[in-house]
Design a protein around this nucleic acid. Sequence first.
DNA 1: ATGAAAGCGCTAACAC
DNA 2: GTGTTAGCGCTTTCAT
Lengths: 342, 342
Amino acid sequence: MQALKTHITLNIKTLANELGLSIGTVSKALRNSHEISEGTKKRVLAKARELNYQVNPFASSLRKQKSKTIAVVIPEVANNFFALAINGIEDVALAKGYHVLIYLTHEDVKKEITISQLLQNGRVDGILMSLSAQTKSKSHLVALREKEIPLVFFDRVADEFDVPKIITDDFDISIKATEHLLKNGCRQIAYLSISNNISIENRRRSGYEEGLRRNNIDIDETLIINCEDEATSREKIKQLLHREKKVDGVFASVEKLAVMTYELCRENNIRIPTDLKIVGFSNLYTAALLNPSLTTVTQPAFEMGKQAATVLFKMIEKRGHHFLQENTVIPSKLIIRGSSIE
Amino acid sequence: MQALKTHITLNIKTLANELGLSIGTVSKALRNSHEISEGTKKRVLAKARELNYQVNPFASSLRKQKSKTIAVVIPEVANNFFALAINGIEDVALAKGYHVLIYLTHEDVKKEITISQLLQNGRVDGILMSLSAQTKSKSHLVALREKEIPLVFFDRVADEFDVPKIITDDFDISIKATEHLLKNGCRQIAYLSISNNISIENRRRSGYEEGLRRNNIDIDETLIINCEDEATSREKIKQLLHREKKVDGVFASVEKLAVMTYELCRENNIRIPTDLKIVGFSNLYTAALLNPSLTTVTQPAFEMGKQAATVLFKMIEKRGHHFLQENTVIPSKLIIRGSSIE
DNA sequence: ATGAAAGCGCTAACAC
DNA sequence: GTGTTAGCGCTTTCAT
C-alpha cells in the first residue's frame, strides 16, 4: 500500500505543469541551456523562485554521477592548524558551489580505513586528507585510487604515494628552528615526535638532525621521543625532563606536544627559558600571551587548505590524472618569542 | 593481451548477475531482510565483499528520501568551543552511520541565509545550528521549518524560535562570574558583548546585570561594549581601557574578546590582575598557561555537541514528534585562575 | 524465498 | 525551441 502524500512534492514535474511546459524544457531552462529561449528561461526561473523550487540533489547526482561534494579527512578538528585549514578549504569549496563533508580519524588508523571505505561509493567527488599519526600501511589509500577518486594530501602526507601533496617546508624550517636553539646556547636538544610513520614527521625530524649535524652536534637517539601514544607521551616527556644529562632545549613537532611540555615544566618547576628552551610547531593564536610567550614554527594553515582544495578541484574538473607530480610547498615562519631566548 | 577498458559499473545488477539472483533478492539480502534465506544472505554478502560492492548512496537516498547526512552550521571552526562541539557531534553521527556536512557562516547572516536555502532541498535529514552574531530576522529559519527539516540549536540559539535548544546555564554562570569579580574588588566591570541580537548573548548579559544588581551596583550602559563588528571592536575595547573613570574588571562573553583584551593590556602596559581583572567565556586549552593564567567560564562544548546531535537524531527517527519544548541546559564551570585574583 | 516491475526526480539524447 | 523518453541504481510492493 502506497503511503498517502500529505502534500505534493515540489519537483520538476509540478513546476513544468504549473508552467504548461515539458519537464525537459524546464530542466534545460533551469540549467541555462542555450537551446531555450530567453523568455522561457525567465518564466521558468520566476516560477521556480516563486514556488521556492530546489533541484533534488540525489536525483541530479544519480543522473550526472557527480556529487558536488568533497570530503575532508583529518586527525582532529580541535587543533588550530586543522581548523584554519578547514577555513581555507571551505572558502574554495563555497566559491565552487561544493559541499564539504568532514571526517575525523582521531589519529586512529582504523578509523581512517573505515572512512576511506565509506568514501569509495561515489558519495564525494574528491578527498582532501591529512594522515593519522598511526598510518603505516596504505592499502586503504590504494583502494581509493583504484576507484579513481581524486585525492590530495595536505600537511600529513605519504611521500611514496603518488598524489598531489600540499606541504610546508618542514625540513628547512626545522633546521632553522634547531639552529635557533643552538645559537641560543642549547646543546642537549630533544625532539618530540608525533609518530615515526608519517612523512611529515620524518621531514621535520630530518631537519632537526640536519640542524645538529651542521653544527657538529652528535645525534642522541635517546633525545628523540616518540609521542604517538597520547596516554604514555606525557610520562615520556616527564622522564626526559628529569634525566641525568640535562636537556636544555625542546623542539616539538606539533602544538600539542609544546603545550604539554609547558604544562610539565610548570608542574616540575622547570623554568622556561632559563632551564629549558622551547620551540614548537604551532598555530596557537595565544602563543604570544603564554608565560613565557612561545617561539613557534607557524604554518600557513589557511593557505595550505586553500591550495589543497584548489588542486583537488582542478583534478575533479579535468578528470585527467596529470597532477601526480604536483607538489606544493608553502613556507612556514619561525616566530621567535620568549621561550627560546633569555 | 590487455583488454579494452570497458567501464563496467559495479552496481546491484552486476552483483545479481554474478550470483544468478534477481536484483530484488540481492537488495533485500544486503539489507538483511527476513524474507531472504540465511544461505542466500551469506552468498550475497560474501560476493559483495569479494567485489567490494558499495551501495550507491544517491540511488538509495533518492528512493528512500533519506540522506543519512546532517549539516552543522556554525559561525567559526577556528574556535575551541565549536571545534570541541564538532567532536561531540561527529561522535554521535559516526555511531549512527551518518555523514556530517559542515558550513561556516563567519558570523555573517547573509551566509547563514544562503546556507539555509541550500539545505532546503533534502540534502540533509537534519540540521544543527549555532547562529551568527548578526542574526536578527529568522525568516530563513522559518523556511527550514516549513520544509519540515529537523533543526536543533546549540549555544547560539534563537529563544523565541520553537525548536529544541542545547545551551549552557549562561544566566547563572554569568551572575557567578560577575560576583566573582565583585568579590575580588572590582567596581567598574565592563561587559564585552559579541552581539545584542542573539539570545545567548542576552542571557549572558542579563546574568552580568543581575550580578551587579544583587550587589547594588548601578548598571552603566557605557560599560557594555558591543563587539559585533570585528573591525571596530579592538578600538572600542582600547578606548574602554583608557576611559577616565577607570575600568577595573572585564567580563568577556566569548573567548576571542578575552584574548583581545589580553593583547590590548600588553600593548598598553595595563597589568592583569593588578590594574584590571578579567574573566572570559573560553574553552582555550592553554588558559592555565597564559600570562597571567586566565579565569574562564568553561562550557561543556563536547557534551553540548553530543547532546545536540542526540536530540536531532531523535527528531529524525521519530519524524514529526514534539520536541519543541525540549530545552537542554548543561552547566558550565567557572575556573578561577590568575587573571581575576591578586 | 525469490522475482518482476514500478518508480524516486532528474538529465540528456533524440525527435519533432 | 520544445517535447518525449530512456535510463542513473536502488527499494519495495506485489506476484509467484
